[in-house]
Nucleic acid binder design. Structure first.
Lengths: 345, 345
DNA sequence: CTGTTAGCGCGTTCAG
DNA sequence: CTGAACGCGCTAACAG
C-alpha cells in the first residue's frame, strides 16, 4: 500500500521542465531566474499544491528557524507575557516558538531540553528552575545558544536578562518601612530560585537600612501554590505579633494572600498592608487597588530576543570556537506602582 | 572554513564498530540488540555526545511530533489555558507545541498556517478567526489533520470542539431575566466570530422566552480591546434608558467594563448587574465577586487532543483517502458561576 | 542477531 | 543563466 505522498521539489521541476535547482532558486530568491521560467515554476508549483519542506531544508541548511522557550508555566501571566513578547520579536523573521512548561520540575526541564536539542532548535530561551542540568553542557557542545531570562542557572551557560530583584525586594520593603511599618513579612518560594534569593536580600537590605536587626526579618517560605500561600497567610495573620504588612513575591502568592484576607475578613489596608509582585491589569480593579512591583517585561523580552538572535547568527559563523567571552548579564530596574493597598502606620 | 559539526549516527557506528542500523535500533528500541553491542553503542554515543537528529528522522518517518497551536493571543488567559491543557495532553508522547498568536488577523493566521504546513507539523489545533482561508485546502491536501477549538471555521475542515455558546448566552441572559432585569445589554465583538453569533443567539432566545420583543435586544458591538469596551460601557451607562444589567462576552470586555464602572463610580450590583464570560481566579476577589460563565476548558482540551491524536494516527494509515465522514462536532455545556455581581430588581 | 543500501526532500556546488 | 550530482542524518527493507 503506497504511502500518501506530497509534491516535492522534483515534481515541480519535472512539471515545469526545469531543474530542481531552478525551482529552489525561485522559491528562495537566491539567484536570478528569467521571468518566464520563474513564472513557469510558480505555475507548476501552484498546480501541484507544492510547499517546500522545512524539514528537508533544515537538513542541509542546519537551521530550523525554531526557538525553544522554556518556562515554569505557560498559564502564569508572567510567563505568558514573556512568551508573547518573544513571539512578537520573532515571528516576522519566520521563527517559530516551541513552548515548554516545566512546572518547576528539574526533571521535566531536562526532558524538554533534550527534546529541543534533538529537534535542533536554533536557540533556547529559558527561565530555568536553577537546578544543575548536565544537558546544558550537551546543548553547548551542540552549539545551540541559550539565553537565560528571569532566573539564573547554576553556572553561566549564556547571557542573562533579569529584573534587578535585589532592587525589587528593596523597593517594596523600603516603601513599607517609610510608611512606618516595622513588622513586614515576605512570602517567598524555595530559596533555590535566584529571584527569591535576590528579593529576600533586598528585603533584608532595606531592613538593615532602618536599623532593624536581622531577627526582625519575617521570611516565610511556601510552596508555589495558591493553597500554600493561603495557609501561610492565615497562620501568619492570626499570630499574636502578626505583621502589619505583607509582600507577596509573585502572582500565585498574591492570589493566595488575597483569598486569605477575604476568607478571614481581614481588611486591607486597614488591618494589613500589601505589596504584590507581578503587576496585572486586574490589580487596579480590586478594592483597594493593589500596590505592586512591575517587571519591565517588554524590555526584558526585546533584549533577550536581540541577544538570542545575535548568538544564533554567530553560532553559524565561527569555524571552531568563539572566544566565548564571559556572558553578559543585563539587569533592568523594577517599578513600584503605588496604589491603595498600603497605609501609613 | 569548515562548518561546525555535530556527531552523527555514522560517527557513533564507526566508534562502536557496528552499522548505523544497529545504532538506530538501540536508540529506538526497534529490534533486539545483544546487550554487549547495545552497551558498546551507548558508550560510543556518550563519548561523542551524540544526540539523534529529529530533523533527519522526520525526513524519513514523515512525522515531526510537532503540533501547531493557533490562537488569537497567547496572553489571553482563555487561550493560555487551552495551550496549557493541550500541552499537558501531549508532552508525554514526545510531542512539541508550536504556538502562534494571530491577534484576530486573518492574514497573520494564514501566514502562521503556511509556516506550520511547511514545517510539516503532525497536526494543527486552531481557534480560527473564522475567515475563509484558502490555506485550509492546502493543509488538507497535505493530509495534515486540523482540529478546531472554540471557534468554527467557515467550512468544515476538521472536528470541532466548542462550548455550547448558544446555551452560554441563554444562561447568562435568563439568569438576569429571572432576577427581574428587562434592560440587558450584551457587549460582543465582531459578529463574524462563531462564538459571538451563538452567544447573541442565546441571548435573544432568552429574551424571546420572556416575551421581550426583538427591539428590547441591546447588542453592542465593540472592538476586542479593553479601551473599546471601556468607551462603550461609559456611553451605554450614561444613557437615559441605560441597561440595568451588562453581559461582557469575554475577558477583555470584562476588564473594560469593570474599569468603566470604577472610573464612573457606578456601583455594582446596586446600579448595574454584571455577568462576565471566562471565569478566572481573581473574579472571586473583586468586590463584589463577579458572576461568570465558565468554559469547561480542561474537557475541551482533552477531547481536542484526543481527536487530534486519532486523526494524526489515521492520517498515516490510509493508502489513498479516508471516507472523510462528516467531521464530528462536540459541544460542551458552559457553567454559570453565581457570585455577587447581580442583584434582583 | 547484524549489516548493506536505497531513499526521504532539499540546498549547493560546479561544470556547462 | 541553467542543470546534474552529491550530501545532509536517519530509517526501512532486505540480506546474510
Amino acid at each position: 500500500m503506497r504511502r500518501k505522498s506530497v509534491p516535492t521539489i522534483r515534481d515541480v521541476a519535472r512539471e515545469a521542465n526545469v531543474s530542481t535547482a531552478t525551482v529552489s532558486h525561485v522559491f528562495n530568491n537566491t539567484r536570478w531566474v528569467s521571468p518566464s521560467t520563474r513564472q513557469a515554476v510558480l505555475d507548476a508549483a501552484a498546480r501541484l499544491n507544492y510547499r517546500p519542506s522545512a524539514i528537508a531544508r533544515s537538513l542541509t541548511t542546519r537551521r530550523t528557524h525554531a526557538i525553544g522557550v522554556v518556562v515554569a508555566d505557560v498559564l502564569n501571566p508572567f510567563f505568558s507575557s514573556i512568551i508573547r513578547g518573544v513571539e512578537d520579536g520573532l515571528w516576522r523573521q519566520g521563527h517559530s516558538l516551541i513552548v515548554c512548561s516545566t512546572d518547576e520540575q528539574p526533571d521535566k526541564e531536562a526532558y524538554y531540553l533534550r527534546l529541543l536539542l534533538e529537534r535542533r532548535v536554533d536557540g533556547i530561551l529559558i527561565a530555568t528552575t536553577g537546578a544543575d542540568q548536565p544537558i546544558f553542557d550537551e546543548i553547548q557542545y551542540h552549539h545551540i545558544p541559550m539565553v537565560f531570562i528571569d532566573r539564573r542557572p547554576s553556572e553561566p551557560y549564556g547571557p542573562m536578562i533579569e529584573t534587578d530583584n535585589v532592587q525589587a525586594g528593596y523597593l517594596a520593603t523600603r516603601y513599607l518601612l517609610q510608611l512606618g511599618h516595622r513588622r513586614i513579612a515576605i512570602l517567598a518560594r524555595r530559596p533555590s530560585l535566584s529571584t527569591v534569593v535576590s528579593r529576600v536580600q533586598g528585603y533584608k537590605q532595606a531592613l538593615a537600612e532602618f536599623q532593624l536587626a536581622n531577627e526582625a526579618a519575617m521570611v516565610v517560605t511556601v510552596n508555589p501554590r495558591q493553597e500554600a500561600a493561603f495557609q501561610a497567610t492565615c497562620r501568619l495573620l492570626q499570630d499574636d505579633d502578626a505583621p502589619t504588612a505583607l509582600i507577596a513575591t509573585n502572582h500565585i502568592m498574591t492570589l493566595g494572600v488575597l483569598t486569605a484576607l477575604k476568607t478571614a475578613k481581614i481588611r486591607c489596608p486597614e488591618d494589613v498592608s500589601i505589596v504584590a509582585f507581578d503587576d496585572l491589569p486586574w490589580l487596579e480593579l480590586l478594592a483597594p487597588p493593589l500596590t505592586a512591583i512591575r517587571h519591565p517585561i517588554a524590555e526584558l523580552c526585546s533584549i533577550a530576543v536581540e541577544m538570542l538572535l545575535k548568538a544564533v547568527d554567530e553560532s553559524s559563523g565561527e569555524g571552531q570556537e568563539s572566544a566565548t567571552a564571559a556572558f553578559p548579564t543585563v539587569m533592568l530596574p523594577p517599578i513600584l506602582i503605588e496604589r491603595g493597598s498600603c497605609r501609613p502606620l
